[in-house]
Amino acid sequence: MPTRILAIDDSPTIRGLVSRALKAAGFEVYTASDGVEGLGVLADADPDLIITDVNMPRMDGFGLIEGVRGSLEYATVPILVLTTESGSDLKARARRAGATGWIVKPFEDAQLVAIIDKVLGR
């Protein structure tokens, strides 16, 4: 069974790019456009890993992480934060919120897959 990934980003372009890269790497990809939608589709997507943007309307990435970590079933699903900042501030915040790791935009497809592989131990 292919590994399932839920990608959450309010930008259709980024969603598209992430999906494309992940599908090419053989993942099964689900998408959502913000935190609220992300939590909403969590059970349907049943992800092995979540990739989320930080700045999103309605519910941002941190809110999503909190929600996922607070759930019973998905509390330890790896969550990677997509960020344009390589600065330490955001990483620290992501870490505090309970993110597994982060991916700095822009990323190359291979990098994205390598990070996911690392986190999933594939």
Binding site: Y30, T31, S33, A43, D46, E73, A75, T76, V77, G121
Partner: peptide, 25 residues
């Protein structure tokens, strides 16, 4: 050492129907 890794495997596989692309646009 994965056997020793205490990562909970508690979450059940979603039963039956898997939703298709979960976008709701």
């Amino acid at each position: 050492p994965s056997a020793a890794a205490p990562r909970p495997e508690g979450r059940a596989e979603a039963p039956g129907a898997k939703a298709a692309e979960a976008t709701t646009t």
